[in-house]
Write a protein that binds this DNA or RNA. Sequence first.
DNA 1: TTGAAAGCGGTACCAA
DNA 2: TTGGTACCGCTTTCAA
Lengths: 333, 333
Amino acid sequence: MRDVAATAGVSLKTVSRVVNAEAGVDARTTARVNAAIASLGYRRNDAAVNLRKGIPLATIGLIIEDLANPFYASLARAVEEVATRHEHAIVMASSAEDPERERKVVFDMLQRGVDGLVMVPAGHDHRYLLPELSRGTRVVFLDRGPGGIEADSIVLENARGTREAVEHLIAHGHRRIAFVGDPIEVETSRERLDGYREALDAAGIDFEPALVRMGPPRESLIQAATRQLLAMPQPPTAIFGQNNRNALAIIRAMRSLTATVAFIGFDDFELADMLPVPVTVVSYDPGELARTAAELLFARLAGDSRPPQRILVPTRLIVRGSGEITPRRRPGS
Amino acid sequence: MRDVAATAGVSLKTVSRVVNAEAGVDARTTARVNAAIASLGYRRNDAAVNLRKGIPLATIGLIIEDLANPFYASLARAVEEVATRHEHAIVMASSAEDPERERKVVFDMLQRGVDGLVMVPAGHDHRYLLPELSRGTRVVFLDRGPGGIEADSIVLENARGTREAVEHLIAHGHRRIAFVGDPIEVETSRERLDGYREALDAAGIDFEPALVRMGPPRESLIQAATRQLLAMPQPPTAIFGQNNRNALAIIRAMRSLTATVAFIGFDDFELADMLPVPVTVVSYDPGELARTAAELLFARLAGDSRPPQRILVPTRLIVRGSGEITPRRRPGS
DNA sequence: TTGAAAGCGGTACCAA
DNA sequence: TTGGTACCGCTTTCAA
């Protein structure tokens, strides 16, 4: 900017006026300055502007677990849309489901001066955010709630959605229904398991721990768990898969066993309707989930100071076939 | 920082030393400063640091078309991995396939001071980048090359991969092979069409324009195009689908017609192996594509000044079934 | 209409 | 080991 001023033979302030299109600059002066800008290829340094003005960067941070998972990619897309509408840029990072990394990434973003954060938490203890929050930093939790602190969160009706699915299976005659999911430490897992138990209870079916398999979302482990379930002396006649990743693994495992048990998954996924047995799922709109979170963040940034909200996004069962398979009598029984 | 200095009863510079863990500060002083930092909840302002040091933000920009497309999500994930390894943050924006928006987003990012850019171009003319490039800004094009300028690009072997697929169909007896793709303005489309023609030429099959349908990647349009192809007096016995989006649409359209024509798609997609007729595809590693681009960007940022590179990433045919269907004689012929 | 000088939050250089 | 002061690129305030 100094160079521009020198080239145009005016003061710094005048250049600043031209760049910011402030009123009260002679047209000829403006022209000279613009010429200088063009010839020097000058571009304003936004960081300096923000520093001087003491305002944030018009940037929000988005922290998710893994972009390659279509579920998170949809979330990211929706958040980006909202951010764009509010003229904010978005800086993104993956926590890779590692609480330590989540923490690092959060600090990193705050240090860079993001205005606020939308995050899918990986950890279960967010007290490290307390100083930030009391300083006025805005954080909205997405898909899972915060741990140990009060903060905004947008989550699915995990228990209700799961309960509905399991009741659907029960209505089709199933009484031995397996639950395959993520580790119980994950909030969504816990809530979905709750819904599963509620449905069993309501139908007077005993909860059988052996039918519940929760563990890390690794394809090989899930497939192994599925095979073990189906190899039980009294195997389940239906399986509930707790999310999109393990749904795919379970379906693969079942196919390789040419087993025909009923299946319902949580999370819809592309081509679910095109598989040999179209897959019944608990569905919802990931865009709605993420948009709600982003809009809430922007409302907070705009001054909304209601107490922390916990907003539930509804789910609905999409019936396609795999959830309507009825139990088979086993040979000899 | 001033407050910290006052609270700890030391000078600004001493606080700066502590914050930056510089040597030569008395342990007791350090402790006092750290106590002050903790009690005030002080955090350094990175923007000010960068301003003073005159260094960039350790941030790279990533511009893609649409995060919700799993292909782009994989690219984003891979770029993010590399950026993390190089301790850079990543700011992301979608061009939504709109050249105007691409331009806006590029300027925006540069103004914010990103160190460099990885972009999947939406437009076909990037001369607007010339001033930036001559100023030393580093831009790497991903998946499609730049238009009107010389710049680094990482692209797939589109022609070769397509040629291989079409030759595969020809080897299975097909002579009427349709090509369904994006508009010809898109570089990848053009190259894939070239590969298609090469394969036909090599086999001495006449190119028939009626068998080529190129248009916007909208599901309804692609399905309509597919139906029209199959309703031709002499319909194709095989279809080549130019990317993952139109592959899905074509498969849906074919199923609703219960047609059995051979099919090969460009881009692998999840569950391709699980469909009733597993889908043969031209595959490659999206991660490799994106990693190569990001690594090249960081090499450039580190001073690599070779002439602009155009790096080709290989493809390979994955045979699963749909591409091995042989032509049926039509009733009465 | 234009300019001079101070200051945003830090760091670098040199002196104490 | 510590502090003073100039300065990064820009805007603000106030004066010319």
